[in-house]
Write a protein that binds this DNA or RNA. Structure first.
Length: 547
RNA sequence: GCGCCCGUAGCUCAGUGGAUAGAGCAACCGCCUUCUAAGCGGUCGGUCGGACGUUCGAAUCGUCUCGGGCGCGCCA
């Protein structure tokens, strides 16, 4: 139990369960102590009392507990500000050593099964940076939610059916014909030649000739899919399942859903097509399910796909989509509702688009203007760690500008190094200590020893305490980030944590002539190393031992 | 026109309804004979787009408004 939770339960006792919710938070200002609560102001109204009086009453009841709280102050409108005792602080820190590689993660709490679906790009070309952002955010969400106690599964929905694939096949064939010296009429509907051509070439190198249009299309599709898989896994983006859209058509799942929708009377025919009464479910217009040429739409297959997910026993479906797809949300949920499913179990995380900054100029990504930046291009220049960090750093709801020149820099301007460097510094200190004391065993994590951390001069004590408090924030940070589906919070937290450490490092020498102080500081460094490494693990970024 | 997202320092962005809004970059000034200077300290920089409202308290919640991005296909 954290010191905040302990204080919270003390307050609960003090107010005899009067309040609905007791909020204990770390104040922004240091002068306001280590923990604060607004409970007196919350209670003031219902109790018809002055908040300062209520605060005083609570203070009187709590001040006896000196093992937990060393002082209580009451401030302006009615805040109660607590200073936690050194021993309680050290006691909280012991969690880090007992939990180690599980520190910060939710323990022994089995929550529901969640399926996270993300990227789900068409196998019709290179992944662009927008996909890259979705890939990184999705994979971090998977890590984060699983560390927050959920049972996780991840999935890539392969859009290997329909119009885009037909286009791919036509484009590939045209490229092939052209390479054989035939005159080809290049349709405007084709994919850009330079995007597909390299794939076609590679396929043809291995393929046995002659080849039919269908065979070529299939092979190019499979090859592109394989390339995407490899590329994604090279930056720690992996999936438990690769789910083929085509399979839903083959196993009649799409047909079955259509039948059920018809039975529910939410469809009608118009202009030779079959429509879904999406407007009845809040959509801006009705949507086509079966085109006039009898081919099913993406929407129909997507409804079938989500029903398949539900049938597999998932209680929560998190889907990561590019923001340009937000218009599809209502119709998909409408389809599920129409068939009696609880559409609330589907939660879509929209990732805003990425624009680019190059040579100080912002450029919109556009296929036509030739300013599409691929995952491959950036990843090969900056490496997986910086790639992931850049794309996870800002909230998915925010449009982000990817500064290519900065990402390519690979020097100290690159923020990921700030965090990694903190970890490397920890490791370096341990290397030094081991060299000096080859026989020493590292079992410094006992409270009697650790209390030495805080028995130092004012400046050192302040830097040390800041670092301890920040380390202790980690578990709450994980829970909050998971709850808000905001893995970027972890990146932010780690930046602050690294900052507190760099400051500590500058002020406090770890290896000193005082053996007890040295050992206690080594233990703190170890706690930090564990915390950074567990945080980076959520982000899928390596924690280097030296840099 | 309607819907979704965003608007915070010159730039890129943090910021679970709390107290004096924070980083990084850029600019300027300092700090390496001791654990990695990929670091630390300092200066400069803000009517949190605007208005009104809810609240003891609003960058955060609500309404309106202005600005930007995206969407409103028998494409996905």
């Amino acid at each position: 139990m954290s010191y905040k939770q302990k204080i919270q339960s003390e307050i609960k006792n003090a107010v005899n369960g009067l309040a609905v919710e007791i909020i204990v938070e770390k104040p922004r200002q240091k002068e306001h102590g280590d923990a604060a609560t607004n409970i007196a102001m919350v209670l003031a109204k219902s109790q018809k009392k002055n908040p300062l009086d209520i605060a005083n009453e609570i203070k009187e009841k709590l001040k006896a507990n000196t093992t937990l709280i060393s002082s209580i102050d009451i401030a302006k409108p009615g805040f109660l500000n607590f200073t936690v005792s050194d021993s309680a602080l050290i006691e909280s820190l012991m969690d880090v050593y007992t939990l180690r590689e599980n520190y910060g993660y939710v323990q022994n709490e089995v929550k529901e099964k969640i399926l996270v679906e993300y990227v789900s790009a068409n196998p019709t070309g290179d992944l662009h940076l927008g996909h890259g952002r979705q890939a990184v955010i999705g994979s971090c969400l998977v890590n984060l939610l699983s560390k927050a106690g959920y049972k996780l599964s991840s999935e890539f929905y392969i859009n290997d059916y329909g119009e885009q694939i037909a286009k791919l096949s036509e484009t590939s064939w045209a490229i092939y014909e052209k390479s054989n010296g035939k005159e080809v009429i290049w349709s405007e509907d084709f994919y850009p030649e330079e995007g597909i051509s390299p794939y076609v070439k590679k396929v043809l190198e291995k393929a046995s000739l002659p080849i039919t249009k269908e065979e070529l299309g299939e092979k190019v599709k499979a090859f592109i899919l394989e390339s995407q898989k490899e590329l994604l896994s090279s930056c720690q983006v992996t999936f438990d399942q690769w789910f083929s859209e085509t399979s839903l058509h083959k196993n009649k799942a799409v047909e079955e859903v259509l039948k059920r929708l018809k039975e529910k009377n939410v469809t009608y025919e118009k202009e030779g097509a079959l429509w879904f009464k999406a407007e009845e479910f809040g959509d801006v217009r009705d949507r086509v399910l079966i085109r006039s040429d009898k081919r099913p739409t993406y929407l129909l297959a997507d409804i079938a796909y989500h029903i398949d997910k539900i049938n597999r026993g998932f209680k929560k479906l998190v889907t990561v989509w590019g923001a340009d797809h937000h218009g599809q949300e209502v119709s998909l949920k409408g389809g599920l509702k129409a068939l009696g499913y609880d559409s609330e179990i589907l939660e879509i995380v929209f990732v805003q688009l990425v624009s680019l900054k190059q040579h100080g100029q912002e450029v919109k990504m556009s296929k036509r203007a030739g300013t599409v930046i691929t995952v491959d291009e950036v990843l090969s220049e900056v490496g997986p760690d910086a790639f992931r960090y850049f794309l996870i750093e800002s909230h998915s709801n925010n449009r982000m500008v990817f500064d290519i020149d900065l990402a390519k820099k690979q020097d100290k301007d690159n923020p990921v190094y700030y965090i990694q460097y903190a970890h490397a510094r920890c490791c370096s200190i341990f290397r030094q200590y081991k060299e000096l004391n080859p026989e020493e065993k590292f079992d410094f994590d006992n409270p009697e020893l650790l209390i030495n951390l805080l028995k130092v001069d004012k400046e050192e004590r302040s830097a040390t305490k800041d670092l301890i408090l920040k380390i202790l924030d980690f578990p709450e940070e994980v829970v909050l980030a998971a709850k808000n589906r905001a893995p970027n919070r972890i990146a932010n937290y780690l930046k602050e944590l690294a900052g507190d450490f760099h400051q500590f490092y500058t002020i406090c020498r770890v290896i000193t002539k005082d053996p007890n102080l040295t050992k206690s500081r080594l233990a703190l460094v170890e706690a930090l190393e564990i915390t950074i490494s567990n945080g980076l693990c959520i982000l899928g970024i390596t924690a280097p031992e030296s840099m």
